[in-house]
Amino acid sequence: MNKMTRQFEGYSFIGLWIIGFMAFSLGPLLFSLIISFFKWSLLDKPVFIGLKNYIDMFKLDPLFWKSLKVTFTYAVVSVPLGLIVSLLLAILLNLKLKGMGIFRTLFYLPSVITGVAAAVLWMWVLQPDFGILNYFLSFLGIQGPDWLGDPNWALTSLIMMSVWGSGGGIVIFLAGLQNIPQLLYDVSSIDGATKFRQFRAITIPMITPSIFFNLIMGVIGAFRTFTQGYVMTNGGPLNSTYFYALYIYNKAFQDLQMGYAAALSWILFIIIAVLTLLVFKTSSSWVYYETERKG
């Protein structure tokens, strides 16, 4: 086969994706950058205003800062919490005891309910007077708050909900744990290592790639949180759950400020890109891959 036909053949297979990438990813991404320099309501002609959208955002828009803060807080608390819970449960599920399959399914189930169904379900669970959460708290003599209606508790409620749905991570951790050679444990116990020491010196280093994966996915997911804020609280009360993605949506499709919303979305893109790169760059110092043993 000659060179030309090879080229042609290769591109006829991947060409489909290249077209789609241009039309539905790269094109829109660049277009979004362009309209971020315009004032545009979608109904009238766009007006070029340079960097004004960005300057206004940083200087004059308290809601921009508020939504950033809400989203950061949510990410910083919910992601590590979810990781710890799912890792702990995965370690227990990895013990060779009877009935672990059933427990695995039980922990995983909640992560199957996502989006609007989960949002609606949790609105009922968190209902202040008849919800079951406050019912269980009353056993402990605690008068539970009006979870979603109280600015001090609304974000906490959504964090609880995200930990509840973190079962997907359990599966990834389990896969990681099951790949650790039993030999390492056998040898180290002959050498007199305690269980705790084994956990610290074998288990944790060996599953860092899984932790790494879950961390990246978790952080990106947290920054894209939208449905909970939109369906359950509409950003309230007092903007305490005003997620960044919700702010973009409202600016674009409620206020029809397309240029401003595009500028907001580019900031989100930069944040996600920087975080992802940061996690990748620093990973070599704390992620242990079996194939690249270091001295």
Binding site: P28, A245, I248
Partner: peptide, 14 residues
């Protein structure tokens, strides 16, 4: 790495 949220406004226009 490109989030849906970033492309969705121009996609709407498109």
């Amino acid at each position: 790495m490109i989030p849906y949220e970033v492309t969705i406004i121009p996609l709407y226009v498109e």
